[in-house]
Amino acid sequence: MKMAKQEYDSSVQAGEPVGVIAAQSLGEPGTQMVLRTFHMVGAAATAIATSGLPRIIELLDAKKVPSSPIMRVYLKESYAKSFAKADEIANKISEIKMGSVMRRAVENFSKGKILIILNAQSMQAMDLTARQVAARLGKELGVEARVGEHGNIIVSTHTKNLKEVRAITVKATRSIVNGIEGAGRAMVTQAKDGEFYIESAGSNIEPVMQVEGVDASRIYTNDLFATYRVFGIEAARNTLVLELKKTLEDQDISVNDRHISLIADAMTADGTIQSIGRHGLVGRKESVFAKAAFEETVKHLINAAAFGQIDYMRGVTENILVGKQIPLGTGSVKLTIKRKEGKKK
């Protein structure tokens, strides 16, 4: 009687295949999603993010780095109210490579010097001075870099070796001259409530959190593994839920939150982020038959035979395979009779 009441009160009944239902609930709308990768989202110019089915696949496969990382950096109250202050921080974060501000590099091998001719127009557009660029370049490469005539940069190397000079030239043209590596182009955006925040087309939260004025407790990235590294498994799970939900909502698909939560919980159940599929959740299954029925049948069977593995036939797949009742729903209940009571009748 007590069990019957508990059963009645619970939101999911015992033996209900919640996992299968979650998978189908996400899988069916997935068939209606767009297969295109690029798609403009929102008003921000930076946000050309992977969306739709490719993004869902990326999330469920637990890809180490998202194909279009994005960062939302919120600022502390004193900075969030003025555009100028927010823009100042955005300039500190925004990643600019040498390649986008220079015209060309001229090497003088006999003197071991490299002359970098800057593009004045793009320098102005990006709000940079030659002195800033030279200072940063010197720090990045560990060489002496100073501002020469006409605002050009002169890099003095300590070698006259042709190969080494050329190597430094190549490094210099690829070097970062402003901002934080990986952070991408950062722009100030205004939220509906008037707060200014920074949106960026790259992600590298660890150094960004250290920047003065950044509210580290609200920084957001769509990079699951970065969140996992910095904030732990629970934050990664929450990011996973938010990303799945947002991707679905962008395509006007509504999936019940519980299904999304369940999938995220399953993917993070062992304390790390597991993908769904051969290398993740399915690969971790105990049953040999269940694994063999999924992918790489022969490999699993040969391995099991070679190592003398035992299949306890507790799962669904293996029981369907041999034609037994599956341990779900009605099949999860077994009947036992107490001897004494049986005798009374």
Binding site: A216, S217, R218, I219, Y220, T227, F231, G232, E234, A235, N238, T239
Partner: peptide
Amino acid sequence: MLSKREHELVPTHK
């Protein structure tokens, strides 16, 4: 924000 949590996405652990 009411809570003094490390991050919005990190729930209270104990």
